[in-house]
Amino acid sequence: MISYILRRLLYLLPVCIGILLVTFLIKAAIPTDAVSMLYSGQLTEETSAEAEAIIRAEFHLDQPALVQFFYYVTDILRGDLGVSVRTREPVIDLIGYRYLNTLKLAFASLAIGVILGVGTGIISAYYKDTFFDVTAMTVSLFGLSMPAFFLGILLILFFCVELRWLPVIGDGSWKHLLLPSLNLGLILSASLARITRSSMLEVLDLEYIRTARAKGLNERLVVFKHALKNALLPVITIIGLQIGGLLGGAFIIENVFAWHGIGELAVKAIIWRDFTITQGIILISAATYVLANLVVDILYQVIDPRVRLAG
């Protein structure tokens, strides 16, 4: 187990280097940079050119690419994400609270999505081809086909404006969290329900489950202990993959619900060309994603020790 985790960690090394390299390349490839944007359209060219030069030097932009990359990597190794080009505030300060917000939203959506999705999937598989199954699977198709913010606007209009049950805006309380996580959770549950169902069906059809049933073991015990354990493997993989989308990818939902997470900031940073913020966000969400998938793989190991490392 320990050696598995260690080897698994070793695999992360090239991925981390790759992520560093790509974030750096993104900055290099974007035609205009934050500094010229900061001063674009200003009144006196000489004064803005002077200020531009100061900031360029501060961010080592006047150095060759290789030197810039060196500064970039050493800063990150020291745990320093730099300061925003636009506001010159430490990136960690700008990202920190937003990252917590995004995590809150991601976990709440994940919780709603998993409970709703996996639950529906199991029941659907158990009561296959019944009214519940057909309805649940049809509804989940709707979930897959709905543009996210469309659902968001409807949720706000219904729960906040019509029913007045929940606040439209807030500062991160659970009441504020409920609607955006419901929005993301519903969409997530749609795909999870379908995967859980088909995976459950597959497992229920396997030899040892049939044997268990034939032996007269308690039906519920068979389904929930033996079958579920195995059926959950692919579901966990999908959850691991979905975390990537929830981290930083939910900017539309964050915008619609005025939920201030990193996705919203990332979009602004890309448009401002503020490469330090962009890099910081991408790094932190990539790191979380990699970490989450590490945990997923370890979970696998725990559930099914036959799983071996490959590729």
């Binding site: 790759g18 790509v22 890309i270 060309r273 990539a286």
Partner: peptide
């Protein structure tokens, strides 16, 4: 590993960065 790197970026942010 390259694919892992790409998957590490949130899908939509990756698209945004490419379009930018």
């Amino acid at each position: 590993r390259l694919m892992d790197v790409m998957l590490g970026f949130p899908y939509i942010l990756l698209i945004l960065a490419i379009v930018a």
